[in-house]
Structure formats: structure tokens, C-alpha cells
Design a binder for these strands. Structure first.
Ligand SMILES: [Mn+2]
Ligand SMILES: [Mn+2]
Ligand SMILES: [Mn+2]
Ligand SMILES: [Mn+2]
Lengths: 217, 217
DNA sequence: ATTAAAATTTAGATAAGACTAAAAATATAT
DNA sequence: ATATATTTTTAGTCTTATCTAAATTTTAAT
């Protein structure tokens, strides 16, 4: 049985492994989890002890198959609970992450299976992130950052890379939501900003915003 | 902010105060929480420190108003989650207690208010226990143990005193559910058993069972 | 009123998880 | 190649929540 803290480390390592290619560094984990490197070293030893991670001193960490599956299970719970909060309890998509951080640690297979059914087996959470099935499998909708899409073309807003409250609130304010069709109208080389067009309006977005918006391709 | 462990102690003290009249003893709490008396002494000091409980060495514990309100809030969450599990996720009433023991510690006012609305502001949980409102107020339906009801009279099964899995499964097996109309037909002095009658059948129940069934009066 | 039993508290240990400061290893820059 | 900077680990401390064993207080019984 994994503890709440172990689960948070596994999740962090999983997310870091998915970005960078090689073994995950102690400092990277520390930053992600907002803890100190020395605490990470301790925990990583414990995860290796439990065969949830591979760890060689000074050489970083990677998840074992068991570790990866455990991480996926926590991520599955997180995303199902977020979906519940938005779809059933009418939370806004910028309010659910913190609550899901708590709910993801509730231990009951049956609960999460029933929740999954209750939500009609959703494949993606409110931020467009894929929800793994109970075996840890998922399919991410093919998408590209707006930055990498050529001027004149268009697509449907599939997911956001940054799901921070600040970014989501920005999107709310500017009436951008998942499912919207977005057309890239213009690119300004000076500040790398983009002009985009939706059903309701035309607007300019910064590079910073653009790289966090993913369109179907 | 109260910890999970503190919340469990507050709940235990609350329930014990409601039965017995005077101050709650260290041993009683220890038994309820399945821990050692010495652990209880430690925690009770901490609760007193936080002004959640009144505590005088060797003389037992009682909740302060703040302690009582905190306990009520945890109980409110517990019962709302149980209601969610049964009414929305189709759990059976004997399966929900353990899961609610975890869910009751999730910290979010907004979550529990929205859950309350989602469930249509239920007044009683799946075991017939009253659900306090957000101010800690509730109204228990007037009821009496079957043991204290005279032969020949009848009432509606309102709540069960014992909500252990074993007892609830016994009731499932014998097709007794909340809302059923029950008539007391006979009393056998020898073993203090009772014969009762429901729409579907007539059956004999032990004293032990009878004292845990509460009928409207 | 003593004495025995039961309940409660204290003292000291342990385990998980986190932190600080110092030591050791690795990476970078000249 | 050597010195410097950065990263990582170790050693030791702290907090929360437990536990066991011993000491103390209260209660019950003679
Ligand atoms: Mn999230
Ligand atoms: Mn999400
Ligand atoms: Mn319960
Ligand atoms: Mn209940």
C-alpha cells in the first residue's frame, strides 16, 4: 500500500519522465513537489526499496513498471474526480485541481470504477488531458500547440498544457474554452504574438499563451 | 486547521458524549478509536491546547463549542458522502462507511456545499442518521427502538443504531430496509425475542436485533 | 482505613516525512 | 588540468502520531 506522500512523488516522477527523456534528477523532483532535495533523496530510496523506482546514487530516478502503473492509477483518479467536480458539481475548470489533489488519494478500487461509470467513462478531463483506464492505458487526441500551426489554418481547442488557475482564468476572461474552433490569422515577428479568430471574436495572444493552447490536427 | 487524526478524535468524543452523560473517559475514547489510552492522553492535551476540548487530568474530556462544531462538520461530510455513494454511485448501505471515513477529511467548504445541493439537501443518510446543516443544526426524526414499542403497534423503520457491515448485511438478507412498515406481533419472554410483520413476511428477531431497529412514533 | 484493582498519565522509543547544514560527487569554466 | 560551481547525498534535528512499560491517581473492596 502506497502512502499519500509516495503517491505524490510517483506522480511527479511520472510527469517529469514524460517531458525530459533520461533519468529524472533529484532537483527536478524537489522543484515539482515544492520540497527540498534532501527530502527527495530520502523518499527516492524508499521508492527504490519498494521496487516502485530505479535509483542509482547521483544518477537520477526512473519508475519501474509497478511505479508507473501506480502513478497512472493516481492520475486516473485525479482526472476522474476533476471531471466529476466540473460535470456534476458545476465547478469551474480553474477550481478543481486543488480538490482533486486531495481526492486522488482516496483508496477504493470500487469507488473509482463506479465513479467512472457514473461519469459515463470519460476519456478526457476538463483540461483536455486523457484519463487512463483501469489498466493504465489511454489515448491522447492528436494535437499541436498553436505555435506550431501555420497561418491560415484552424482547429478545435483540445487541451491546455498549463492548467494553472491563472491561465485558466485568463481563458475564461477571454471566452476561450475547450471545443472552440480557433483559426490562426496572423503572426507578429516582433514579439511573436498571434492573432486568432473564434466564432465570437478576433483577438491577439502572446507567445506564452499560444504555446499552452493545443489544437486538433 | 485540524488534522485527520484530530478530526477522528473529535468525532469519537462527540459520539461518546451523546451516549453517556458526564465527561468522556480516556479508555472509552481509546476503545472507540482502537488505539492505546496513552495515545489518547497525548491527543486530548493537544485538543485542549487548541481549545477544541476541555480536559482536566484524570477527570475526562468534553468538547468546547468549537470542538463540537468541528465534529459536526466532519459528521456532516461523512453522512453526505455516504448519501452520495448510495444514491448516486449505487453502493449498498453496508459498503459506504469505510469509504466515507476517508472522504470526510477532504478539505473544501465549497465542495461539501455543492455536494449537498447535488444531493438535493438530504436530511438523513442511508442509515437514517440526521445530516447536520452547515451550521451544525439538524433534526432527528422522533423514533423508538423496537424493544420499547408495545405489542400490536406498528411504525416505519427510520434508522439503525448499529451500522456495522455485519448488521446491515443481516438486514439485507432478511429484506428489511429503511422505510419499511413494521408491526410488532409477539414477544417471547424466554429469550426476549420478537415476532414482527412486514408487507412481505413475518419473522422472528432477537433482542439484539430489535434494540438496533428504530421505528417512527 | 487499608489494600487491591482499574484507569490514567508520564517517560522513553519508534516511524514517517520534512528540514538545515555540512560533506561528497559531478559538471562547468577557464 | 585545475579550480569553481552546481547537484546530490549524508548526518543530525524536528514534528506528528503512535506504542510499551513504569509511575501515579482514582475507584472499589475488604
Ligand atoms: Mn489537475
Ligand atoms: Mn486536469
Ligand atoms: Mn458511517
Ligand atoms: Mn451513516
Amino acid at each position: 500500500m502506497t502512502t499519500l506522500s509516495e503517491e505524490n512523488y510517483l506522480k511527479a516522477i511520472y510527469h517529469l519522465e514524460k517531458q525530459g527523456n533520461d533519468a529524472v534528477s533529484t532537483n527536478a523532483i524537489a522543484e515539482q513537489i515544492e520540497t527540498k532535495a534532501s527530502s527527495v533523496t530520502d523518499m527516492v530510496k524508499k521508492l527504490a526499496e519498494k521496487e516502485l523506482a530505479n535509483y542509482i546514487k547521483y544518477q537520477g530516478v526512473s519508475l519501474t513498471e509497478r511505479g508507473r502503473l501506480t502513478a497512472m492509477s493516481v492520475i486516473r483518479k485525479h482526472r476522474l474526480w476533476e471531471t466529476f467536480l466540473v460535470n456534476k458539481l458545476n465547478f469551474s475548470w480553474d477550481e478543481v485541481h486543488e480538490i482533486a489533489e486531495q481526492l486522488e488519494h482516496i483508496k477504493s478500487e470500487k469507488l473509482i470504477d463506479k465513479l467512472d461509470d457514473f461519469l459515463d467513462n470519460p476519456t478526457h478531463d476538463p483540461h483536455g488531458d486523457p484519463i487512463p483506464d483501469k489498466h493504465g492505458n489511454y489515448t491522447k487526441i492528436k494535437s499541436k500547440s498553436i505555435l506550431d500551426i501555420s497561418i491560415g489554418s484552424q482547429g478545435v481547442l483540445i487541451s491546455v498544457k498549463d492548467s494553472s488557475k491563472a491561465f485558466l482564468k485568463y481563458l475564461n476572461k477571454n471566452e476561450l474554452a475547450l471545443g472552440d474552433t480557433v483559426k490562426i490569422v496572423d503572426f507578429e515577428p516582433f514579439d511573436e504574438s498571434l492573432t486568432i479568430e473564434t466564432k465570437s471574436k478576433t483577438m491577439t495572444i502572446s507567445k506564452n499563451v499560444a504555446e499552452n493552447l493545443y489544437l486538433s490536427v
